[in-house]
Design a protein around this nucleic acid. Structure first.
Lengths: 341, 341
DNA sequence: TGTGTTGTCGTAAACGTTTACGGAAAAACG
DNA sequence: CGTTTTTCCGTAAACGTTTACGACAACACA
């Protein structure tokens, strides 16, 4: 069925070595023979077998993207990743690289999936998502000397890999700024309880801005909850019960914001009327919620493309003559002002 | 770095053939030698190189999932696919199969991506999404004799491949039923204008139910639009302008429903009050929209798992002794009654 | 003891590439 | 014409597996 390089060689009555060199654009092959080889390749509908190529070259030409669902993830998962994946995939495709997606159950099992990819050499590099503050996947990969890049920062692994992140710190800062400018002084913050790094970054920005405005940070206005709707629903009341009720809340996750708004509604507090609400990472849900939620939006598709570039630039096989560069980038978010604040 | 089967053989002072047979559980190897091989494998941290294996066996142990974004897709794409992908991936992982995701720009370019996967043998089979009524990808794959399965039915390719689809016909039927039971007689239908097969199926069910209730199908109440929010926004007014305004609308796509509701609101027609709205495929957006949209919901994750099973059952390498079975399945949707009808 | 059977293992080919090496012919040079 | 360089191509090894085949020993059976 499929024609191999041997078929071409036999058909043209030349050696397979010459055929290979001709196809790969090597210099030491006559222009006319190259022409004949290319024609024959088209005629016999030849394409190189990737397995053979991988074996010989020790590279699979595929990149693994691993996303680690949070325990208790909702039915519809994270709409966040589709546009990111789209960008990532698009750029990789330009380099003729495939994208392998590795998911699986949350927890330790995930580590094993990663090991499998690395040890059986199913991919040339890995892109990590859902980065934790301390991430054993990063530890493992850097110890194994396997190339990778991360979406999101981590404290693990040092400065040895490219990473691309959203500027959560600045978003937290700007959110407070905006609220203070609108007269708020009692501003609550709700973030995920897991070890996800962005929860820390957000809180840093939140605290910094409060201090700048001379507002004391009230621990009673900060709450951690499970990173989904139920978590937001459960934890938001805690922040409301406090002696001096906040007039604004910043949610560090869209699902938690939705749950939180539900809790607020049940307490007779109307978001956008009785309390201001800002969400740190925008999703389509924020837009269609009622009231439409003011939120900070990342440009996910360009981020996907960019992280692909950064990863490729760190791979010896793709890095230009200037060699390997480790990069970290932090991208700003855009404030989408809507009706909730 | 990575140990090969040769390393094991040298270490144990036996031949590579025996090592391979021991690892693969062949019968013709002494129990004690097998034990020693397995121990050495663990000790030297051996895992088989997938490229070598693929080359020899002519199988890559990876499945490609191809989704073809509609032209003009929104920033956040289709939340639809994440849970489906999750299920698909989970079941494939149980068989030690990898998942490759192929996306790319809409249009012809997509065909080339598919050809590349097939011709360079980067995957053992393909799963197709966004199935068109006439789908050249299906034509290509069946002509090429390449194994595949589809999410969604098509008229292409005959009954030669497993497919799993949602029962759009029944959903259209039930939606009409429900609306008629609530007193509606003028019911509009809005569906995507592309050649997507589910648009036809939906309309079949819609028509069938109307006829059963003795209601004449009014072409003025049926409109096709671009399958996104802008399309719904643009096309919904056409159906409203008709001499005898409908009292209910069924949208065959969530994004179109959101755009349609916006158009309605601008015309002073309140969904859920002045007009009933039902959406055929539920997404989280329907739930959080105001009013919350009544919608039909598929169970996407189980569908992903099921389609993986169906595909595997059709592959000679995985089919049981009963041989190859071609399957088509159509799954029901669950009505989620909310506030819009 | 001779013959057939069974259990265990080694040998070597094969999968489809790429590439280091060397050789033959042609071209360039004196 | 002889020598050196260049151009072009064939040979063969290598990547890491799996597996058909045959060999050898041990064993069973008559």
């Amino acid at each position: 069925m499929a024609s191999s390089i041997h078929d071409l060689a036999r058909h043209l009555n030349i050696s397979i070595g010459t055929v290979s060199r001709a196809l790969n654009g090597r210099a030491d092959v006559n222009a006319e023979t190259r022409q004949r080889v290319l024609e024959a390749a088209r005629e016999l509908n030849y394409s190189p077998n990737q397995s053979g190529r991988s074996l010989r070259q020790g590279a699979t030409r595929s990149i693994a993207f691993m996303l680690q669902p949070h325990p208790g993830d909702q039915q519809y998962g994270e709409p966040f990743f589709i546009p990111f994946l789209t960008g990532l995939q698009a750029r990789l495709a330009e380099y003729d690289l495939d994208l392998m997606v590795v998911m699986g159950e949350p927890g330790q099992y995930q580590q094993e999936r990663l090991r499998r990819v690395v040890e059986t050499r199913r991919a040339d590099a890995v892109v990590l998502a859902n980065t934790r503050r301390e991430d054993d996947r990063i530890d493992y990969l850097s110890k194994a000397g396997f190339p990778f890049a991360t979406l999101g920062r981590s404290q693990s692994g040092g400065d040895t890999y490219p990473s691309l992140d959203i500027d959560f710190e600045r978003a937290g800062d700007e959110a407070v700024d905006r609220l203070v400018a609108r007269g708020h002084r009692r501003i609550a913050a709700i973030r995920p309880s897991l070890d996800l790094n962005f929860g820390y970054l957000f809180l840093d920005g939140y605290r910094k801005a409060l201090k700048r405005h001379g507002i004391k940070v009230d621990p009673g206005l900060i709450a951690d909850g499970f990173i989904n709707e139920a978590g937001g629903y459960q934890v938001t009341p805690r922040v409301i019960i406090s002696k001096d009720r906040p007039t604004a809340i910043i949610f560090n996750n869209d699902a938690m914001a939705l749950g939180g708004c539900k809790a607020l509604a049940e307490m007779g507090i109307r978001p956008g009327h009785d309390i201001a609400v800002i969400v740190i990472v925008d999703t389509p849900l924020c837009r269609y919620f009622s009231p439409a939620l003011t939120a900070f939006r990342p440009s996910l598709e360009p981020m996907g493309r960019r992280l692909a570039e950064m990863l490729l630039a760190s791979l010896p096989a793709f890095a230009g003559p200037e060699g390997v560069r480790i990069m970290r980038e932090v991208w700003p978010l855009e404030l989408i002002a809507r009706d909730s604040d």
